[in-house]
Simulated assay, not measured.
Amino acid sequence: MSSIIYKIVPAVLWQDARKGGDFKGASIDLSDGFIHLSTADQARETAARYFAGQDGLLLIAVDGERLGDKLVFEPSRGGALFPHLYGPLPFEAVAWEKPLPLGADGAHVFPELDR
């Protein structure tokens, strides 16, 4: 089983965070008190539910093993366990970042995901 988890984020917000040294989260993360992440099996539904029709997004792959005990899997949609990060996301934990474009059908086109 892969330790890779994912964050969908507007590219502008991510680039600003890179200049600042770490990623503290998007507005929903800041208001909820943790950074929302998804497993490979959850990422597509997260994109469809919370980012429908949004362009200019990045998919960030994060090595969950590098996050330590600040990464907690907690029940959310339908009781599924979602990864939540209680603290900033260190860039050293990022495995890769790729554009998450919209396809002709309006759905996001995902790269191959580690499962």
Results as ranks from 00 to 15, higher is better:
Met1Gln: 07
Ser3Pro: 03
Ile5Cys: 01
Ile5Lys: 00
Tyr6Leu: 14
Tyr6His: 14
Lys7Pro: 00
Lys7Tyr: 02
Ile8Arg: 09
Pro10Phe: 00
Pro10Asp: 01
Pro10Arg: 02
Ala11Trp: 00
Ala11Phe: 01
Trp14Phe: 14
Trp14Asp: 02
Trp14Met: 11
Asp16Gly: 01
Ala17Gln: 11
Ala17Met: 05
Arg18Ser: 02
Lys19Pro: 01
Lys19Cys: 04
Gly20Lys: 07
Gly20Val: 01
Gly21Trp: 12
Phe23Gly: 00
Lys24Ser: 01
Lys24Val: 06
Gly25His: 05
Ala26Met: 09
Ala26Cys: 04
Asp29Ile: 08
Ser31Gln: 12
Ser31Asp: 11
Ser31Ala: 08
Gly33Met: 12
Ile35Lys: 02
His36Ser: 15
Leu37Glu: 06
Ser38Met: 06
Ser38Glu: 03
Ser38Cys: 14
Ser38Arg: 03
Ala40Gly: 08
Gln42Phe: 11
Ala43Asp: 01
Ala48Gln: 12
Ala48Arg: 15
Tyr50Asp: 11
Tyr50Phe: 13
Ala52Met: 06
Gly53Ala: 08
Gly53Asn: 05
Gln54Lys: 12
Gln54Cys: 14
Asp55Gly: 09
Gly56Arg: 11
Gly56Asp: 10
Leu57Lys: 06
Leu57Tyr: 03
Leu58Ser: 06
Leu58Ala: 07
Leu58Tyr: 14
Leu58Asp: 06
Leu59Asp: 08
Ile60Arg: 03
Val62Arg: 03
Asp63Cys: 10
Glu65Pro: 01
Arg66Trp: 06
Arg66Cys: 08
Arg66Tyr: 05
Leu67His: 04
Gly68Trp: 13
Gly68Cys: 13
Asp69Leu: 15
Asp69Asn: 14
Asp69Lys: 15
Lys70Gln: 13
Leu71Glu: 06
Leu71Asp: 10
Ser76Lys: 09
Ser76Asp: 08
Ser76Gln: 11
Arg77Trp: 10
Gly78Tyr: 09
Gly79Met: 13
Gly79Thr: 15
Gly79Val: 13
Gly79Gln: 13
Leu81Met: 13
Phe82Met: 12
Pro83Val: 12
His84Met: 09
His84Phe: 02
His84Glu: 03
Leu85Thr: 06
Tyr86Ser: 04
Tyr86Glu: 04
Tyr86Lys: 09
Tyr86Phe: 15
Gly87Glu: 05
Pro88Phe: 01
Pro88Asp: 04
Leu89Glu: 02
Leu89Val: 02
Leu89Asn: 03
Pro90His: 07
Pro90Cys: 13
Phe91Lys: 14
Glu92His: 13
Glu92Ser: 15
Ala93His: 11
Ala93Lys: 14
Ala93Val: 12
Val94Trp: 02
Val94Leu: 09
Val94Asn: 01
Ala95Ser: 14
Ala95Gln: 12
Ala95Glu: 07
Lys98Ser: 10
Pro99Trp: 11
Pro99Phe: 05
Pro101Met: 10
Leu102Gln: 09
Gly103Asp: 06
Gly103Ile: 07
Ala104Phe: 12
Ala104Asn: 13
Asp105Ser: 14
Ala107Pro: 00
Ala107Lys: 12
Val109Thr: 07
Val109Pro: 00
Phe110Glu: 09
Phe110Pro: 05
Pro111Trp: 10
Pro111Phe: 10
Leu113Gly: 04
Leu113Ile: 03
Asp114Cys: 05
Arg115Glu: 07
Arg115Met: 09
